[in-house]
Design a protein around this nucleic acid. Structure first.
Length: 485
RNA sequence: GGCCCCAUGGUGUAAUAGGUUAACACAUCACCCUUUCAAGGUGGAGAGUACGGGUUCGAUCCCCGUUGGGGUCACCA
């Protein structure tokens, strides 16, 4: 085959949110496409009417968009292989299933769910290892089928799995995987409501949309032989498969809702940057082979290859994600952080206060390396946005002695005499007071920090003073003196 | 249970044509810096590569088996 540009697809079902595992699948598809100048297709697999969720498709597209993974083709982007929503392609699946029936590769089945249930129980009791449909309806005559169809009996269409040679799945990540056809069930292709199952729909669509590489989660590996069979029965070229390792909980089971957040929306809400989440998730199952851990999306595109994708599942380790969020935060420029902080402020109790860009960027500069998230500028640096109301008990016990009010009183007077002080001026003034009383600077620094911030940790105390400004500092010393004396 | 996949420190990974004191990052601990908290720097602890057999002069790496874990067995995707 002449080398042609790959076409890949991300094919989620619209269940209401995007799973982080789905995000990684989408990312790898996207990276592979971009790396090889290919096309990234978004296709919506909404063939289960029972699971239909209002607005899910829109939110899926929105979240993908947030992450920066824009589909080249899809329900929103359009394209010449549409429609990209499976519920709009019912006639296509129907046509193809009819073709299969004509070729005896599929057949009508009128068995009731009751019969199926009985069959399952019988097989179970007989010690069968798995439930397999007994091809009961395969023996129906053409007339019988015609009559039942005319009578409007409930029916499905099943894949007619032929016994014979092993079914081979060539996987880019796992190599050759073999399946015995005896273990493959006559999978339902068209449900009684007329909708196709995933198996039929994804094969038909991947073929029609000229998908060259099917990159999806490992949970699909066991059903891949059914898909291979379908390609063969249709006489179609089989795409390349790449089954990605699963994302795991800390107990190594498949990442699930019960053990933490799985929706990308949850991570957005918690304040994670898209850059960090993408960076993190990219590293779950893939590495470039060098020691780089920090990546932007375009660097990932540059370095990504399916060959370097890991085979074993990867535990989703939130600590590392937090670290990456920290790293990405450190590298954001001041303007962006100011605007992010403003958004945060507008959602907080400080929404009615006003702060200048200059003030905010000074706060950011002072707090930056002490926070992992933008919202922590407010949580950890609240004293830049309001005077402390309470004072940390532990620090108070440790640093607030009988003499302290006297020292601070003098410090207040000294500060008051300064003109447009910068941090060095505060430092000099404090040194002077310490000398006058013949005490260590610590006797002043710690209570002063407590008084202006209410807490014992944070940026250098002189930085805090400079940012707060002389008047505010003096005011805070005065109120604290009243409250703590 | 059948079928399938997987197996390097707690976690994510490196060691791709079999030869390394098994490397890096997160987390963790200590020290330095800082009269705070972080960040940063330095160092430590932590895996003899699940186990057992082969093949080989030599296996993390190749083969077989065992064990363990996971996935999947729907008219869900």
């Amino acid at each position: 085959m002449i080398h042609c540009k790959p076409r890949v697809r991300f094919a989620p079902s619209p269940t209401g949110y995007l799973h982080v595992g789905g995000l990684r699948t989408a990312l790898y598809n996207y990276l592979f496409a971009k790396r090889n100048e290919g096309t990234f297709v978004l296709r919506i697999e909404d063939t289960d009417r029972n699971r239909f969720v209002e607005g899910a498709v829109e939110s899926l597209i929105e979240t993908l968009d947030w992450a920066g993974l824009k589909p080249d083709e899809g329900p929103a982007a359009g394209g010449s292989y549409g429609p990209y929503v499976q519920s709009q392609r019912l006639n296509i699946y129907n046509k193809h299933s009819q073709k299969l029936i004509e070729d005896h590769k599929a057949y009508y089945c009128f068995c009731s769910s009751e019969r199926l249930e009985i069959l399952r129980k019988e097989q179970q009791q007989a010690g069968a290892s798995q439930m397999k449909y007994d091809k009961h309806c395969l023996s129906l005559s053409a007339d019988q089928i015609h009559n039942k169809l005319q009578a409007g009996e409930n029916c499905v269409i099943r894949l007619n799995v032929q016994s014979g040679e092993k079914v081979i799945v060539e996987d880019l990540i796992r190599g050759r995987v073999e399946f015995d056809p005896e273990t493959i069930d006559d999978q339902v292709l068209i449900k009684s409501d007329g909708y196709p199952t995933y198996h039929l729909a994804n094969v038909v669509d991947d073929h029609l949309m000229e998908i060259t590489h099917v990159i999806r989660g490992e949970e699909w590996l066991p059903s891949t032989p059914k898909h291979v069979l379908l390609y063969q029965y249709f006489g179609w070229e089989i795409p390349k498969f790449a089954h990605l390792p699963l994302l795991l909980n800390s107990d190594r089971s498949k990442l699930s809702k019960r053990q933490g957040d799985v929706a990308v929306e949850d991570y957005i809400a918690k304040g994670y940057f898209k850059e960090a989440l993408i960076n993190f998730v990219a590293l779950l199952g893939w590495s470039a082979g060098d020691n780089q851990e920090f990546y932007y999306l375009d660097e990932l595109i540059d370095k990504f290859s399916l060959e370097r994708v890991q085979k074993s599942g990867a535990v989703f380790n939130i600590e590392k994600l937090n670290w990456l969020n920290f790293e990405h935060l450190q590298r954001k420029d001041s303007n962006e952080l100011v605007s992010l902080l403003r958004t945060e402020i507008s959602k907080s109790k400080y929404m009615n206060k006003s702060f200048s860009d200059d003030y905010l960027s000074r706060v950011i500069n002072a707090m930056k390396e002490r926070v992992n998230f933008v919202h922590e500028f407010l949580a950890n640096g609240f004293y830049f946005f309001e005077a402390p109301i309470e004072f940390e008990e532990k620090a108070r016990e440790k640093n607030w002695k009988a003499d302290t009010p006297v020292y601070l009183g003098k410090l207040k007077i000294e500060f008051a005499s300064l003109e447009n002080p910068v941090k060095e001026d505060y430092e000099t003034a404090l040194g002077k007071v310490a000398e006058e009383f013949e005490i260590g600077k610590g006797k002043l620094i710690h209570p002063l920090r407590l008084v202006v911030s209410g807490v014992s940790g944070g940026p250098g105390v002189y930085d805090i003073l400079e940012i707060l400004g002389k008047n505010e500092v003096i005011k805070r010393i005065e109120t604290a003196l009243q409250k703590l004396s």
